[in-house]
């Protein structure tokens, strides 16, 4: 399978309204538009004279080109007002709207939909952010905790605990799982109280990376160091890595909390907004650091690697084989 054979989240649902919107997914410029209850997706280029269709309008479920008024149905069938005998056709992509996002893939693909189990969790937020780094390099940042004490405001571990941190990597054909456990970095006192995170708890950051498309699902929770008992609050985060170009990657992040809003005052909408702001902040810090790299090449050959970089090595062949469809 090639990149566009996998489902990619292209837009947040609320970003697509009456006007068509242009997006770049896996290096392809596409236009998305609403047509009745479903969403149309075509190349963002009129088959007639190459106009950018995302600058057009949607009328009666058809996308209208702003240049000569040629219009296209979601299946790509075109009509020309000036040449009624013309049967222009654009190559339509398949779309689906789920989890508050519009997803696209090539028509006729039978790739799996990237489901992660957030049944009964409540949504904290979704965010989209473009990072100036290739897919592999961006994924690297999101699949090791060694950077967290130095880069992040709240997420992760203390620098002095890094050397003793538990970090287990397990690999299967289609996934790479990493389990990290270590003492929670102290939250500033008011925040700790607000979130109800016990002071001497262990923070567990447990994630699995999949490659159809490339995405990582995180389970983040706390356990009592003495009893091993789980703290009731937990976050479930899914981060999708969409290659925009060989140099840029778009992050599409879905954040859910396990505890439903109405069971605890701590899980109030206010706290939801605060959590959303934290996630934004941490992702922004990742993006800024990645934008400053001196060497963006994706190869790990010749680099000095540490014990947290094991998963990174496991990702490379899976991205090539499962995501890009390179022969093994």
């Amino acid at each position: 399978m090639a990149e566009l054979d996998h489902w990619h989240p292209a837009l947040k649902s609320e970003e697509l309204r009456a006007r068509p919107v242009g997006v770049t997914v896996a290096g392809r410029e596409l236009v998305l538009f609403r047509a009745g209850g479903s969403v149309g997706c075509l190349p963002d280029r009129c088959p007639h004279r190459g106009m950018r269709l995302s600058l057009g309008t949607t009328e009666a479920g058809r996308l209208v080109c702003p240049y000569h008024g040629w219009s296209y149905a979601p299946d790509g069938q075109g009509r020309s007002p000036g040449t009624p005998t013309a049967k222009p056709c654009a190559e339509a992509l398949e779309t689906v709207e789920r989890d508050g996002a519009v997803w696209v893939r090539r028509q006729g693909s039978s790739s799996r939909f990237p489901r992660w189990d957030h049944d009964g969790c409540y949504e904290v937020g979704r965010l989209r952010k473009t990072v100036h780094a290739p897919l592999e390099v961006t994924l690297d940042n999101f699949t090791e905790v060694e950077h967290t004490p130095f880069l992040h405001a709240f997420l992760g571990y203390n620098p002095e605990d890094l050397a003793s941190l538990e970090c287990r990597v397990t690999t299967e054909d289609d996934r790479v799982t990493v389990f990290n456990q270590g003492p929670q970095r102290p939250f500033p006192a008011p925040l700790g109280a607000l979130y109800g995170v016990p002071r001497d708890a262990d923070f567990i950051d447990h994630w699995t990376t999949f490659f159809s498309p490339v995405y990582t699902v995180y389970d983040q929770y706390w356990v009592d160091r003495e009893t091993g008992e789980r703290h009731p609050d937990a976050l479930k985060i899914a981060v999708f890595f969409n290659p925009v170009s060989p140099e840029d990657t778009e992050l599409f992040v879905f954040v859910h909390a396990v505890r439903p809003r109405w069971t605890s005052w701590r899980a109030s909408p206010l706290l939801g907004a605060l959590t959303r702001a934290f996630v934004h902040l941490e992702v922004m810090l990742d993006a800024r650091m990645l934008g400053r790299l001196a060497d963006r090449s994706t190869s790990l050959k010749g680099r000095s690697l540490g014990r947290f970089d094991k998963a990174l090595v496991a990702h490379r062949p899976r991205i090539d084989a499962l995501y890009r469809g390179a022969p093994r």
Binding site: D119, G120, R230, P232, A234, P260
Partner: peptide
Amino acid sequence: TVKQFSSLPGMRFPEHVGLYPS
């Protein structure tokens, strides 16, 4: 059904289990 109204007599679902237990 939600875990708060799906437990058997005398014992609740653990706190860390989500609203709709798997």
